[in-house]
Nucleic acid binder design. Sequence first.
DNA 1: ACCTGAACACCGTTCAAGT
DNA 2: ACCTGAACACCGTTCAAGT
Lengths: 197, 197
Amino acid sequence: MARRKDHTHDEIRSLALEAMQQHLQQQPADTMSLRKLAQAIGYSPATLINVFGSYDHLLLSVSAITLDRLAQQLAHHAATELSPLQRLHSFGKTYLQFARQNPYCWQLLFEHRLPDGDEIPDWQQQRIDQLFAIIEQALAELSPDAENVRQAARTIWASVHGICTLSLNDKLFADHLSNADSMIESLIHHYINSWSR
Amino acid sequence: MARRKDHTHDEIRSLALEAMQQHLQQQPADTMSLRKLAQAIGYSPATLINVFGSYDHLLLSVSAITLDRLAQQLAHHAATELSPLQRLHSFGKTYLQFARQNPYCWQLLFEHRLPDGDEIPDWQQQRIDQLFAIIEQALAELSPDAENVRQAARTIWASVHGICTLSLNDKLFADHLSNADSMIESLIHHYINSWSR
DNA sequence: ACCTGAACACCGTTCAAGT
DNA sequence: ACCTGAACACCGTTCAAGT
């Protein structure tokens, strides 16, 4: 058949990741497949398996990019001239906004699991640690107790995350569509109000 | 081939749902399939499609049962002789415990989405409303403001849910394994502490 | 009327064979 | 060495044909 070899390994990587991300702007991950993706970039399914190891690892690479984009937006909106409390509210707002603007990337990031014994790579966890750092920094300015800060940061993140998840999946059963925003505000306001006392 | 007809429609329903639930005690939903399930109960895949409409609707029926089991446990542990605050803590604790004891049922319940335009049936939403009622009842005893109660109930539920989700998926990156418990306690304590003031 | 075998249009992955 | 066609072992769903 037609030999390709027009691209290096890394170029094929980029082509595939780009095509997948473009798909995720419109449709959920499970409407794409290795075969469709391969056809979209003009290579065979087997080539993509060669490059990424498996379709699951291809999806994991997309999630890594999503995590980077999320981290970038969060860092950008948490400008240090804001007060700690303002930064926390900004974190929640930006997190929800990102989830809304990238629903299918976001779903993939948090719902895709590697099969069986495959472990989440270290570089993926390091990315998450960076997100926690934003919250922890703000909290540290509100309370000196380090261990408390670790737990409070995780509690706030997970709570904000839960509100976003259920909001995206329409499982909040709230009256107004915009309720997730005020729920996050309410959460951060009340939690910090008591926690930082 | 061998005619079955040994069972009524409803009996086939039960057989399939039972077999799926048994599978979910050990393995995630995506390791089962319509074909395997059909074979497990001695019918053809097409029969299950006849009975449930589609494999997706079969999975939805399993989730309905899961939701009922969850509601039952929550109601059981929220005995009215406890104080409102105690009942809220009991809710969080029971919710996490259920998620831990039924990880694959729980994942299916919250991650499975019907394709495209299929709406979540009314009877499923009614089940969720019952869960909110438990929280709302406790909150109502702490504050008279009805609209506030609705939002606070949803905020607390979604937050507890988020902590459970991330804990189950090992995405909390916490030091101790038992941290989800104390995070939920922290969340409810601080939120209510400020909210009910 | 109820059930299903066979067909249909797909999957991800492997690997011998081609260039 | 790099890539892939074809094969393998699966999917969910449909429907004509059997009882």
